[in-house]
């Protein structure tokens, strides 16, 4: 077990590492200087690519090749997409999708 000062330094180190990733873009490209064209291009396109990355990242531990063959995830994601396509209500889509997933993993694909 770490001592108290060591614990504090570990918390600080994790926080510092995290903050480097959060602040770096704003420090390298300050608001009072023109942002390079290439970075502006990334700023326009990365929001969409990054959400795609987050979706895949969230589903990264899904087992597609063994039972239940990713079925709870596939069914839930399909229902969310269709529901959102037709109702456009975020809370409804998230709520139904989550309850469905919980029902599937707790009762159907046990």
């Amino acid at each position: 077990m770490l001592t108290t000062p060591q614990m504090m330094m570990t918390v600080a180190a994790v926080a510092a590492g995290t903050m480097v990733t959060r602040f770096l873009p704003f420090l390298v490209f300050p608001a009072n200087k023109p942002t390079p064209q290439y970075i502006q291009f990334l700023g326009r396109t990365l929001p969409f690519a990054t959400i795609g990355l987050l979706v895949v990242y969230c589903l990264r531990n899904t087992k597609a090749l063994v039972y239940p063959y990713a079925l709870p995830e596939i069914i839930s994601v399909a229902v969310i997409v269709l529901l959102h396509r037709f109702k456009r209500n975020t809370l409804l889509s998230v709520g139904v999708g989550t309850l469905l997933y919980m029902f599937l993993v707790q009762n159907v694909f046990v």
Binding site: T21, R22, P25, F26, F29, T35, Q40, G43, L54
Partner: peptide
């Protein structure tokens, strides 16, 4: 074992995606 440098670099790597958020939020 106590290793703050490793902790620092580990969290830079795990949180690297924040670089993309920052670039997206510059404007």
């Amino acid at each position: 074992a106590f290793d703050p440098l490793y902790a620092f670099f580990m969290s830079v790597m795990v949180n690297a995606r924040h670089l993309f958020y920052g670039i997206s939020m510059l404007e």
